[in-house]
Amino acid sequence: MDSNIIHLSLDLSSFSGIILSPEQKAALQKSMVILKRDYKFNRVLFWGRILGTKTDYFIVKGLGSDELRSKAFLYSFNCLDWFLLPQSTREIVTSSYAIKGRFIGDPSYVYIYVETEIVGEGEDAQEEEITVQVTEEFRLVAVIAQIETEAAVVPRGAYIKNPYGQVNTNRRFEGLSMTEAKKLNSYFHFAEPVRLKKKTLLEKADLEPSIDFLDSLEDDLPSGSWSLQFEKGNSVVVLRSLLWLGLTFYHIPLTSHHGYTYIGTGQKNIDFPFML
């Protein structure tokens, strides 16, 4: 959600229970403006809050010229002093898969776990135990990256791909109509498409390349991992991810107003198959 309209946006994403206190809201508004100037971002969005057992991480997302690819994340404990997170890599993400339990709220905390790895080939293969150390800061990077790829949502048509391949906001996006808003296929994952390339030509026939360049939520596996509801008496569409409990997407139909926040514990709901 944009820094300019953060008040309205926070109000709209408050259906899931956790909001920001007036102090945090006020501090965010000031510091986001300064962040935008200092880091030369095009836009700064409030991304969410990861609840720790001691303190919470507040996270903002800074966007560069390409809204899909050039992005940076910063975290803070008091909404005023921000620290840049390293860019996520495959190693960081895989190394933090095995970490269990809640976030603590201390970026230098080290998680230690033992991993067995098979060394050698064929008959010489031996299992070797390796202790892996991951700091909470890296875990935070990994979790944010995972949420971004699996649960970042935008309405169809809100972003447009220009001939140079850059992804930018669509100036002419006027919001989804009420009928469109009720369907999951009018919402896209805001991440590099994976399933789109695997679609058959017949399925791709109706797609418009400048708009339909992202994966639709409808094709998500396991299906049923999104809860679509209308709040405030049908005036706001709210999408909640059941895999990442705490991710709330909101969109007011027929306006260009949309956004998502993640306010949760930073743990994926792996019990999902048992819960439907």
Binding site: G17, S21, Q24
Partner: peptide, 12 residues
């Protein structure tokens, strides 16, 4: 509760 950062929006 709003001071605590918990709760629903005011009109709700």
């Amino acid at each position: 509760f709003e001071q605590a950062g918990v709760g629903l929006s005011r009109d709700e």
